[in-house]
Amino acid sequence: MPKVTFIQPDGMETVLETDTGTSVMRTAVSRGVPGIVAECGGSAMCATCHVYVEEPYLDGLPEISDVEDEMLDCTSSERCPNSRLSCQLKVASDIAVRLPETQV
């Protein structure tokens, strides 16, 4: 099973195993990892599951859709080149993401 690492703004790490195909967002929410709100439940409608993907895992991610791109432009914490909505990231292999200071 792939491992997803969540890094809180204070540096605390949570490592969770998850099924291939499950989104990074659902992996966090279903186990109660703080810092991912996901008000819309995965429809790319709310931009409250914003994450920064750690450098070694940027290759091979799904393309950013137009909707995700527009939503990322308006996130609560600053958009960076490695910003993604975690509801749009289906886990294929190990990945690590850093959580922003705020989501709303």
Partner: peptide
């Protein structure tokens, strides 16, 4: 409608 940037701007 299919305009998430406008939505986010107004909501903010």
């Amino acid at each position: 409608v299919n305009s998430p940037a406008d939505f986010m701007a107004v909501r903010n």
